[in-house]
Amino acid sequence: MKKISKKIIILVIILLMFMGINYVIMDTNHNVVLANESVEFENFDYEIEKIRQDGDLKINIILSWDTKEEIFINHIFITVPNQEEEVTNIKPESNLKNNNMYHYNLNFTVQNWQIGTMKIDIAYSNNLANTSEEHYIFYIAEGKYLEEEISWGNAIFLAIITTFCIAIGTFIIIENNKKSYLDNIN
């Protein structure tokens, strides 16, 4: 039992060290760059989440902001290098906050895999009649969803390392099981 307890303690310490190195709090809103200053959109925040829909990887984007007056979203244009996509029929949830600001929450899924810097262009108007359309543009760079395809060489290298780790894991688990019953006999 003593030997087993020692092993557990050592493994827990190693594990805590790894967790300490790898733990990170999701960070948002540090990579947003405004193309045009707008006094109307305040407390702008965004969240990006990868999801799997029908076997395809897609991006779910959640935007939120506050405005002093009510606005009506007409279109949202998403642009990435070599690709432009219009997201339509989006109605944000809105509510009036205590400080008389209008809070908007917008949730939509982008169909295609995104690579590079993403430009989001929100076309809105101040009234239902859409008499004058204005644009709110911002860029998201180096977000967590941004990935590049890795090459065959790197893929093979990583696959070998992964396989090696699995083999070591198998060996450790089996050896530990063997030792535990040998300890009992002795």
């Binding site: 039992m1 087993i4 307890s5 092993k7 557990i8 493994l11 827990v12 190693i14 594990l15 790894f18 967790m19 190195i21 790898n22 733990y23 990170v24 967590k144 990935e147 890795i150 790197n154 990583l158 390392i161 992964t162 780790c165 699995i166 070591i168 894991g169 450790i172 688990i173 530990n176 099981n177 535990s180």
Partner: peptide
């Protein structure tokens, strides 16, 4: 005790593998 050792071994294994992969591919962390 045996169960815990297996649990910690599996947890450590997948953490190490994916921490490495994420770091290499995305330059991001778990």
């Amino acid at each position: 005790a045996n169960y815990l050792i297996i649990l910690i071994s599996i947890f450590a294994l997948i953490t190490i593998i994916f921490a490495g992969l994420l770091e290499f591919i995305n330059r991001s962390v778990l």
